[in-house]
Design a protein around this nucleic acid. Sequence first.
DNA 1: TAATAAACGCAACTTGGTTGCAATACCATC
DNA 2: GATGGTATTGCAACCAAGTTGCGTTTATTA
Lengths: 140, 140
Amino acid sequence: MFISLQKQAEEMIRRRGERVTSGRVRILALLLAEQRAVSHHEIEERLQGKYRLDRVTLYRVLEWLNENGYIHRVVGDDRVWRFRANADVNPHQHAHFECTRCTRVICLDDMKTEYSPPLPAGYRPQQVELTVKGLCAECA
Amino acid sequence: MFISLQKQAEEMIRRRGERVTSGRVRILALLLAEQRAVSHHEIEERLQGKYRLDRVTLYRVLEWLNENGYIHRVVGDDRVWRFRANADVNPHQHAHFECTRCTRVICLDDMKTEYSPPLPAGYRPQQVELTVKGLCAECA
DNA sequence: TAATAAACGCAACTTGGTTGCAATACCATC
DNA sequence: GATGGTATTGCAACCAAGTTGCGTTTATTA
């Protein structure tokens, strides 16, 4: 299943001349298939059996994918990192929705805030993050 | 020092008929004196000597102050809670600035976003949080 | 001032994430 | 296709932030 995503993930990494490892491909493919931001723990659960990966490796792969711009991460109110594959949209301007009941996080990709609030003198903005908290469709 | 803030803090709690304890007063006063959001750890450091408080108690006091609306908390990219006394502004609409170098967090109180981005069907927004990341005046 | 319910302090625990290091897997080159 | 060097992996141990249980102390109310 998701063979095409595996291929797509592999191709994304190879194209940039980075080392293609099974872990990177599997995780990136998994995140590409996902509509929302998933936690380290959730990813670990899905990689059972012969696909299982050491938790440390998983952390490192996620860190690597993040640093190299394949994915991005958000920290929720439960202080847990959640990861999502980057669409080709501007990576420095995205919004998230966080459900206050089930802690699920989804990305609101279609928003295009160019909003930049007034900052004190000397402050330099680099990135604006907007999080809407509330109840998701299932919890509402 | 800050006697008036101690008094103010005490008065805030007493006025609502809640139990006035030295820990609550000290911490609320400390937060009232602060222009930015401070972490549990920072608060602990400032309460040395005869003012020192057990870390667990500190966590519990902060939790209590938060639940009772005296303060609010933000989680930064370092996954650490930071606390700030609530101004009398609308508590459900505030913005923060987070320095990507020194992790300092300040509150941008004067912003008045009424912005509510389009959500998927069935989703119910409760609160909008906007975080601007970048370099603070000292780190820029 | 005594009764009592809420707060506090201590110790032990949990969870999410990190570090060091030896073993293994990519991939470039032969 | 074999080989070697470097990047990645897995394991074990570790760390930091925050939580839980429980006996002791303290703030309030009568």
